[in-house]
Amino acid sequence: MTDTDADAAPDAGWFVGLPAAGDGDSARTRERIATGSADEPRDWPRLAVDAGFAETTDDYYDRLHDAALDATRETVRERERADDQQLVHAVRAMDDCERTANELAERAAEWAGSLFDDAEPGIDGARAVAEREPEGELERRAVSLAARVADLADERDALAETIDRLAPAVAPNLAEMAGPELAARLIALAGGLESLAKKPSGTVQVLGAEDALFAHLSGRAPSPKHGIIYTHDYVRNTRPEDRGSASRALAGKLTLAARVDHYSGERRAPLHDELRERMATIRARAEPDRDSDTDAEGDDE
Rank of each mutant, 00 (worst) to 15 (best):
T75W: 02
T75V: 03
R77Y: 04
E78T: 10
A82R: 13
D83W: 08
L87P: 02
V88G: 01
V88P: 04
A90D: 12
R92L: 09
A93D: 12
M94D: 03
D96K: 03
E98M: 12
E98G: 08
E98A: 10
A101F: 00
L104T: 02
A105N: 02
E106M: 07
A108I: 01
A109I: 10
A109C: 05
W111C: 10
G113C: 10
S114P: 00
L115T: 06
D117K: 12
D117T: 14
D118M: 12
D118C: 07
D118N: 13
A119Y: 00
A119L: 12
E120K: 13
P121A: 05
P121D: 13
G122N: 08
G122W: 09
I123A: 03
I123K: 02
D124G: 13
G125K: 08
G125S: 05
A126S: 14
E131C: 10
E131H: 10
P134Q: 12
E135Y: 06
G136W: 11
E137A: 15
E139D: 13
R141S: 15
V143A: 13
S144T: 12
L145V: 13
A146Q: 04
A146F: 02
A147M: 05
R148Q: 11
R148Y: 09
V149C: 01
V149F: 06
A150E: 13
D151H: 07
A153K: 04
A153Y: 03
D154T: 11
